[in-house]
Design a protein around this nucleic acid. Structure first.
Length: 491
RNA sequence: GGUCUCUUGGCCGAGGGGUUAGGCAGCGGUCUGCAAAACCGUUUACGGCGGUUCGACUCCGCCAGAGACCUCCA
């Protein structure tokens, strides 16, 4: 019934059938944030993308270990030149905080906003700073195997030596020779034997705060080593899936592959999956371009590009309306459209509970379910899944209005289908449940006032009825008349 | 400069050689004291020029435009 799941593998540039290496277990590693700033729309994309994958793999019955790292050390401002400050340390200096204070603050922020987006927490969320010893061990092992060298207390990966035995650049489709001729700045760190060599361990100079003792002296790990180390520590030396933003393909993931391969002699990941970028006016949204919009700004509406606040589910829905592999352009209009669409879907979900079964069905629920599975199995085609959920919504409304009939068995099937796909797999959830207030004094007061308005309407005193409606509207309470009474909601 | 990708109707955004994506907006309608909401229905789309083909928006070539990576960024 569910058929096979196909995923696009960056490594082979093909869609491949997914099969766990060690069923029923699945190992999923995703690159998490570097915690030196507030999470923005760009961080939400991989979080949502791989949340869908996590949810769907679990839905298929796999025991998934989902590891998403936190980078809290070693990420320099300028990686190639091997200089520039550590991102965390820079923030700490500016804000006059302990580096770990910065880290903790942004981890908390990240968790808070990811939770609002209804992404499930990973099984393990390892921090680079908590795995210094393991990283040192791996660096030692790479050294022992002759794929690295030490200079003045720093250790660099020896790409020339590596590329004699293995090929570097397969993930990003690059050829080492081309890269040499095309590298903008061949000068870079003078300690390196070869310009494209990258740091595994860096000596900490006198001003560097984040430092750990090692056999090479006091220092800190290079950026790429943490993912090799933590992925293999928790998922084994060869695991199912590694995900992240496509901007990480080069050099981060390429270096990760090189490090892991240097140690085990083999690649460490079966499927590489990369989500595309969130753009704004067609340009990538990023820290360095300073064109990013934080999730807090979106959720509060405090940004000049936004004319109002948008809810977390609206953002989630908006992301799911595009396939993860394509760019997604951010705009107020797109979010507004998503908001309306989501509202329609959620109203359908609400009507679903009110449907009454008939003796027979005039709708084909089974076909709908099959199509939805086909869509999600086709490289997580969420836009098409949503299209089928809207088809389900259309059916629900038609049944609700008496244009179609549904049998008891089919109704059960339809409820299960809609809930499974909308809630369990797409990870959507109802929001704003203050409608038709049942909560507290103000809710009761509004209800009483509306009761009076109803009575005025019943005796055709529309002047009074309109005055009440207008008065409530001025207070931000929107009244909607229904067949058998009224509904209200706070704006 | 190198490598790669993209160009779909008013907007967002799927898709694939011949058969309805979907959402939003617009328009028409149902309902309603009015309004709002809701629901139903609905309009001409595939950058340009060639080629392959019985048939291409879908494959190939060229041109134009946009973008990504080649420093850090999800």
């Amino acid at each position: 019934m569910t058929r096979d799941l196909y995923l696009y593998n960056t490594l082979t540039r093909k869609r491949e059938r997914f099969e766990p290496l060690n069923p029923p277990r699945v190992g999923l590693y995703v690159c998490g944030p570097t915690v030196y700033g507030d999470p923005h729309m760009g961080h939400a994309r991989p979080a949502v993308t791989f949340d869908i994958l996590f949810r769907y793999l679990r839905h298929l019955g796999y025991k998934v270990r989902y590891v998403r790292n936190i980078t809290d050390v070693g990420h320099l401002e300028d990686e190639l030149a091997n200089e520039g400050e550590d991102k965390i340390q820079k923030k700490a200096r500016i804000e006059k905080l302990e580096p770990m204070e910065v880290v903790q603050y942004y981890i908390n922020r990240y968790h808070y906003f990811m939770d609002l987006l209804n992404t499930l927490p990973p099984s393990i969320e390892p921090q680079a700073s908590g795995h210094i010893i393991e990283q040192q061990q791996m660096v030692k092992e790479i050294l022992r195997r002759g794929f690295a060298y030490e200079v003045n207390g720093s250790v660099y990966f020896d790409l020339k030596k590596y590329s004699n035995k293995f090929s570097y650049g397969t993930l990003s489709g690059r050829v080492l020779e081309d890269m040499i001729s095309n590298t903008r700045d061949l000068e870079g760190g003078d300690e390196k034997r070869f310009p494209l060599d990258f740091a595994l361990w860096k000596k900490a100079d006198a001003t560097h705060i984040m430092r750990w003792p090692s056999v090479w002296g006091e220092g800190y790990p290079g950026w790429h080593i943490e993912c090799s180390v933590m992925g293999m520590k928790y998922l084994g030396s060869y695991y199912d899936i590694h995900g992240g933003g496509m901007d990480l393909i080069f050099p981060h993931h390429e270096c990760e592959i090189a490090q892991s391969t240097a140690v085990t002699g083999k690649p460490h990941v079966r499927f590489w999956i990369h989500n595309n970028m969130v753009t704004i006016n067609g340009q990538k949204m990023s820290k360095s371009k300073n064109n990013f919009i934080t999730l807090e700004e979106v959720f509060t509406g405090h940004n000049e590009l936004l004319e109002k606040a948008f809810s977390p589910m609206t953002v989630r829905f908006y992301m799911l309306q595009a396939h993860y592999s394509g760019p997604l352009d951010f705009s107020n209009e797109a979010l507004k459209a998503a908001e309306q669409g989501l509202a329609r879907l959620m109203k359908g979900m609400k009507n679903l509970g009110k449907l009454k079964p008939s003796a027979d069905s005039t709708v084909n629920v089974k076909a709908l379910e099959v199509k939805a599975y086909d869509a999600i199995n086709d490289d997580m085609n969420c836009p098409v899944v949503l299209a089928h959920l809207f088809e389900g919504t259309r059916l629900i409304n038609a049944i609700h209005d008496g244009h179609e009939k549904i049998s008891g068995g089919d109704l059960k099937l339809l409820r299960n289908f809609m809930k499974t796909f909308a809630y369990d797999i797409m990870g959507l959830k109802p929001e704003n449940d203050q409608v038709s207030g049942d909560s507290g004094l103000s809710g009761d007061l509004i209800k009483m006032i509306l009761q009076l308005r109803q009575e005025a309407k019943d005796r055709k005193d529309f002047a009074v009825a309109d005055r009440i409606r207008g008065g409530l509207a001025a207070l931000g309470i929107k009244v909607k008349d229904t067949k058998d009474g009224f509904e209200w909601e706070i704006d």
